[in-house]
Amino acid sequence: MDIEKSILEAIRLAETTIPEDVYKHLKMAYSMEENEISKSQLQSILDNVEYAREKQLPICQDTGTQTFFVDVGFDFPFKKELVNSIVNAVSKATQNYYIRPNAVDPFSGKNPGNNVGRFIPYINWFLRDGDDATINVLPKGGGSENASALAMLKPGEGIKGIKKFVIDQLVRAGANPCPPTIIGLGIGGGSDLSLIIAKRALLRPLGQRHEEKRIADLELELLDLANKTGVGTMGWGGKVSVLDVHIEYAYRHPASLPVGMVIQCWADRRSKVHIDSKGNVEVVQ
């Protein structure tokens, strides 16, 4: 399989098949939920996920903005091919009806029909040691993306300020980002970096904690607080509003405490392409 074909397959896989960790968390949410309407919504969600997987259909009609987090080794030989392959795969995925034409000119609203335009598909590069590359595919829906937020807190507001910002934002978003959601939180860095690491934090499988205990503890504490808001599934109330909280952090300026918050809908679609230095590819979820 060549690189372009494997990216195309990864897009198709992400759009039709929910990752196993997300499926498990949705089932857990269903068994925990006591609110009758929210439980019925979770039932529809599970039915939908199973039906889409069986028939290989898009889980959601909002197939998202095609977003790629690419981790590339310094010695990886096919860097240029990667860019072309991603753009071509996105265009082909649209032609094949795997994804809806979802990229429009911001001023005229004109839709070119292939999900390709200025800066789109969005590719975020991360350079590291090694001679291989991993492409993380993260189609990001509009409804949940609209609930993103940035807070430039005063350092004196501290961790309490971060917690309040998250809760306030969740309540403000209500049913709009399709709860039960997943929260990606980026703490520190600057305005831009906090949001990028927040989105990147969404790549981590649900239930997997940050490697540092202090961060892992904060994730669990925020998850508990978030589930006290009573948003419930699709805003109908109940015990489960958020499936997980993933935090990433960066060092900050002494005068700033940036907090980037990216909300992901329950349809947390992901897949990966791994390419070695010889050009062997593998698509995984």
Partner: peptide, 13 residues
């Protein structure tokens, strides 16, 4: 009235 958000495949049926 609301339909379950994200349940796109099921709705299409």
């Amino acid at each position: 009235a609301t339909y379950t958000g994200g349940a796109g495949a099921l709705a299409a049926k």
